[in-house]
Amino acid sequence: MAIAFKKRPGLVIYLTTGDPDLETTRLMAIEAIDAGADVIELGVPFSDPLADGPVIQRASQRAVLRGTRLEDVLRVCREIRAARPQAGLLLFSYLNPVLRMGLEKFAQAARDAGADGVLLTDMIVEEAEEYRRVMRQAGLMPVFLAAPTSPDERLQAIAEACEGFVYAISRVGITGTQAELAGDAEALVERLRGFTKLPIALGFGVSTREHVRALGEFADAAVVGSAIVGLIERTPAEQAPRAVGELVQQLCGGAKTA
């Protein structure tokens, strides 16, 4: 199974669900899809997002304080699926909220909500046997992270465990925006190509149209998170869906204000 990216590079957009509120998340996701996003990653807010930089940390904290739960994220997922049947929908979470719900129950609920796949930030391939079995049973695609620091034998295991696409981390570090794409990125994608035919999406620090264009030379899709979440932070809720749509359009190169 692979996620079909309609263009090259495809675009994956990360949203922290529940920031600023659930309804705005739904509207922003739909705007992003209509503006050209191939996949929406619905982030499950967590109290201790240790792989995230300040922007997503703050968004996560706001959403947790508003009481956003995994159940809420699943409901938003279902609503987006109903509105946009063709879009790729990925649930993006730290492990603990999923464990608290129960792995099997979560997988069923995610499937029922119309999700295509799941990415758990702190789930590594060695620990994933049971998780992969449950995902497979529910017909969900597990996506794992591949890092510039991962040696080849790990990349191979990661590539084999991934379905839908492989999420390559562009640089050593946490999420956040950056001025330039790290030199690590291209070498990582090249190494991954040796192990998989799945599309490879590149994320962490991808924040501008320039980045997207540049990585399109070697990767299949860009994942943009902090740039979107930061924009949402700066924008009043009622204007956020439109602003997100415009940024996505710009990232796709069809910009009004590029």
């Binding site: 240790l50 792989a51 492990l95 930030t121 702190d122 789930m123 590594i124 060695e126 620990e127 794992f144 992270l145 591949a146 890092a147 510039p148 620091t149 991962s150 040696p151 790990r154 990661i158 981390i169 050593v172 570090g173």
Partner: peptide, 10 residues
Amino acid sequence: GRYVPETLMA
């Protein structure tokens, strides 16, 4: 066990 971002695994 070991539940960390992949970047730390190496």
